[in-house]
Design a protein around this nucleic acid. Structure first.
Lengths: 151, 151
DNA sequence: TGACAAAAGTTAGACATCTAACTATAATGT
DNA sequence: ACATTATAGTTAGATGTCTAACTTTTGTCA
């Protein structure tokens, strides 16, 4: 056991992010980065979302999400609207142009999965997901325990 | 199979990096980030290294490595020297203060490994490394094939 | 041997992300 | 009911990283 799983995951993460950027450029979406993809992904699923929801889903901070949505809005892919329930909230929705990208994103997403899973058998793929989930749950639990300690 | 291994690895990567930053601050090394740790790690192993070697080892670009070494030099942990073999090359070496950190880094590195591997059995840990190596090798091969294509 | 290509390193400029601080609105508790 | 606290979002400033362009030295080959 080399205890190098963290390094391996870091490398894989770097390579997949870099590949994704290339795919987005190839799809004519220059200026759009993987994080924008996360924002769009939630909108494809839910139709609309608040900034808060987008931040939570994409695992970015709210300031970062502000910038991400700014860019998507400039690119004409989403629109900000006032919430009717809560005057503090902003609701983000897809424009027609944004909606039109649903297919391209599905294709890229499939290509990404195939790229990563292709060297693995079905059993190995499932095993990998299981192990990663175990590790992640444990890290999140440890983090929660530590932040609770400082109360 | 949810095909979410990439997302899981991204999350794990984020959490471990964040935890590492906290550990470095706790060790009195504010301003030192994980990438600096990679640079120091090679110096702990080899004693000295060129900028080029440090960049390759830490998987960062040479400009980034310049900045990393600038900071380590300001912090008094390393020193730049002219290479005797090649007038273009810079050789980076540890100072006494840098050498003194060897122990702290070993401790943090052990803590990190234990943090990640603790929810896994020995077999599971080995399996995880095996699967990650398979995925990474495949991604690197694909990348090489694609960059060769554009010749 | 002399021109041209390759390599080592740095500098400059751009970008995604973060934390801290701020504004505005909603919720709570006495 | 009003003061306090919490929440939604943005702005400002800092940081780590990248690509592109530049300088200097080394290697190549005709």
């Amino acid at each position: 056991m080399k205890h190098d799983a963290v390094m391996l995951m870091g490398r894989i993460h770097d390579l997949t992010q870099k590949w994704l950027r290339g795919e987005l450029v190839a799809a004519g979406l220059s200026g759009i980065v993987p994080s924008h993809g996360d924002v769009l992904a939630l909108l494809f699923m839910k139709g609309e979302a608040t900034m808060h929801e987008l931040a939570a889903f994409s695992h970015r901070t709210r300031p970062t999400t502000t910038v991400l949505v700014d860019k998507l809005e400039e690119a004409g892919l989403v629109r900000r609207m006032q919430s009717e329930d809560d005057a503090r909230s902003v609701v983000v929705v897809l424009t027609a142009e944004g909606e039109a990208l649903r297919g391209s994103f599905a294709v890229i997403s499939k290509k990404l999965a195939s790229r990563v899973y292709s060297p693995l058998s079905k059993d190995e793929g499932e095993m990998l997901e299981k192990l990663l989930n175990k590790v992640l749950s444990n890290l999140e639990a440890a983090k929660d325990a530590e932040s609770a300690k400082s109360d």
